[in-house]
Nucleic acid binder design. Sequence first.
DNA 1: ACGCTAATGACAATCATTTTCATTTTTGCT
DNA 2: AGCAAAAATGAAAATGATTGTCATTAGCGT
Lengths: 136, 136
Amino acid sequence: MSTATTKRITTTKITMNKSQLKLVSTLERVGGFASAQELYQMLRRDGDGIGLTTVYRALQSLLDDKIVDVLRRADGEAIYRLCGEAHHHHLVCRSCGATVEIEGSSVEKWAEAISEEHHFREVGHTVELFGLCSNC
Amino acid sequence: MSTATTKRITTTKITMNKSQLKLVSTLERVGGFASAQELYQMLRRDGDGIGLTTVYRALQSLLDDKIVDVLRRADGEAIYRLCGEAHHHHLVCRSCGATVEIEGSSVEKWAEAISEEHHFREVGHTVELFGLCSNC
DNA sequence: ACGCTAATGACAATCATTTTCATTTTTGCT
DNA sequence: AGCAAAAATGAAAATGATTGTCATTAGCGT
Ligand SMILES: [Zn+2]
Ligand SMILES: [Zn+2]
Ligand SMILES: [Zn+2]
Ligand SMILES: [Zn+2]
């Protein structure tokens, strides 16, 4: 049926190719952040013959399409995560690596207020806490 | 309070070697963020025969001594800048690099509360806001 | 089956940062 | 000053993530 009813729904017609789909599902399995290299290793372990170049390319496309977010580890390595996941932060033990996911609406509000105060737009933020857990 | 007479003044005796001093003064001239490579180029242009390795080492020391701050550019390159004594955070324009120093007691309190809630000790934090300034 | 385009991956190239290691400079002491 | 130990230095090689190249392949409509 291709007729006059131009009911154009702005379906952000995003097509994902095979590699992109693989990465999305891998990221789902991860449930958080992962680097390109890590994602590549995971796929390989699962018997997938994907190439590293393709992983990088797919991640870049997913980024362009706003399907994933990117952050930087302390050493500068880029880490990606699915966008849909609830925004949260981390409290990490610097000795054993134990991690607690923090959901803090008060920081979010604070960040927003600061942004407005200084007339900044499209403001994102990085908030990470690191210390020693009760076992260490 | 252990012993009443032990009035130990914690003079943080920080000594800077020649290279570190050079970097500090170069960073002063810059007045903002600069990468290791950029600082190296600047020093070289000024006729200084400093080596790149030394630049990296000096920056690391300055970092350890909390004399400089480090952030990451979008491409992952580390950028450094002089940091005042007072603990603070940054609101950085991801386009032109304009920076506003943020002093936010509410985040500090939030971080502390979270730490106690999860029984973590010696908790430090990273809080950076990045967006587009009013000129960009 | 044919032709065209997007996708792929092996490999090389880049580039910031770190390591190595031999040499130079500074420091501390007599 | 003289001198040994420690700290600092820098050239060059190594590392490691990310990107570029390019020939081959998979998909898809005709
Ligand atoms: Zn721990
Ligand atoms: Zn947040
Ligand atoms: Zn700006
Ligand atoms: Zn703070």
